[in-house]
Amino acid sequence: MLRAEALRHSFGAVRALDDVSFSVQPGQTLAVFGPNGAGKTTLLKVLAGLIQPQRGRAQVDGGRRAIGWIGHQPQLYAQLTVRENLRFWASLYDVTPPGELLARLGLEEHADRPVRALSRGLVQRVAIARALTHDPTVLLLDEPFTGLDRVAAEALSRLLGQHTAAGRATVLVTHNVEEGTGLATDVAFMRAGRFVHFAPRAGRGPEQVGEEYRDAIA
């Protein structure tokens, strides 16, 4: 469903990706943990096709249409309403926004409010709705829990659980081991552009993963 083969990419003298290879199958959720500057966001951008790697190749079955992206920024237009934003993004995928999505994310009563009038947590929920509006088979998530309140974080976790249960793939990058471990079927640790650990989670909890992570990146 998603393959990365010997990815290498540098920004000037800084090597952001250094020989990264892995694959993610349907029903897998790969959580990539790493400190700031480890190359996590670059990895996601290469997988999404936003950055052309200098070496190696990344392939997502179904191409750009199959990808849903939730990043640091919501990719929304502040002057437009929630509904107008979703309608616009859906039109680029030649779909209509699914009606129940707003309800699932608790956004129904905010649908006709401009995004600029929403709180940070609500904006992040709209960003999640935007990413899911075309029913993607591969989700790429860059620190998706940033700015979410507890209710929204739980709603996102539920949605990601349903996504995985439906046989779809997810790659989640974060520096927060606690929030990422529960969702993961596989775990990778990234340091200076390299995977220093990549294995199934195999029942490990956040504490154990956190301990191994600290040892791996030390």
């Binding site: 096709g49 936003l50 680029l92």
Partner: peptide, 17 residues
């Protein structure tokens, strides 16, 4: 400029268009 405000430009580049 309006595409940079919330990195909407990345969303446009990601879209299958």
């Amino acid at each position: 400029q309006i595409e940079l405000e919330n990195q909407a430009l990345e969303g446009l580049l990601l879209a299958p268009i």
